[in-house]
Design a protein around this nucleic acid. Structure first.
Lengths: 113, 113
DNA sequence: GCAATGTACCTTGCACTTCAAGGTATATGA
DNA sequence: TCATATACCTTGAAGTGCAAGGTACATTGC
């Protein structure tokens, strides 16, 4: 549906975005998808087939910790929370992003408009 | 040397960065590498093994046009310039980047600092 | 004479990632 | 009974960067 976003851009932003969302409190896959949409004003829509492997990798690498829970309606959810290692990674990712962003904005403002 | 930048972040920024640099006038591979380093204040250092395939893809897709030239010293260079299609792509990429950047900054400012 | 460095380009194999498409399961409302 | 929403997962195809290798020529220092 949204062809505007290259898979590379999604790949670059997925981890920092997930870590950042979890820095605001624990959440689960389906809800994260909605939060991403909200944060982008409805423009960004991730596929769930992308997000779940991302969550599994982050958990495998110790950035986030998962915990299964059962809702009142009888649905299972896997809640994730940020670990200390995840917090450090978030800070690193944010700095890296801002460096690249600065270079891009510089190049965009430099010669063309 | 620079482990701070994930390959995903490099992948997301490489095309918009190259297109943007060429929007400022034609250039060639080796020089683009130095311009990227300059634009980032020395922080971003691309490998040439990454850049050349990027240039080939952009040329294949009609975003840029290549032209061989021989310098006075007898070295061959391939100069690239932005095509009309490349200009359009640059505008699209820039908008996509800024949307994602906005969502990230929002998430970073929202709950954690 | 020759080694090192800088310029300038290219390709291959590896590991990794998204996406599309498929799957499982339950609850609610028309 | 059927569609929609919730909630998770996996697979195969296609596309990435990176490390490492290669080619070639000019300049500099010993």
């Amino acid at each position: 549906m949204k062809k505007r976003f290259s898979k590379e851009l999604v790949a670059a932003s997925s981890r920092p975005m997930v870590l950042s969302i979890l820095a605001g409190g624990e959440s689960y896959g389906y809800e994260i998808l909605k939060q991403v949409k909200l944060l982008s004003g409805g423009e960004l829509e991730w596929s769930d087939g992308m997000l779940y492997p991302v969550l599994h990798r982050l958990e495998r690498d110790g950035m986030i910790a998962g915990r299964w829970e059962l809702t009142d309606e009888g649905r299972r959810r896997k809640y994730y929370s940020l670990t200390r290692r995840g917090k450090r990674q978030l800070a690193t990712d944010r700095e890296a992003w801002r460096t690249v962003h600065g270079a891009l904005e510089l190049s965009w403002g430099g010669s063309n408009v």
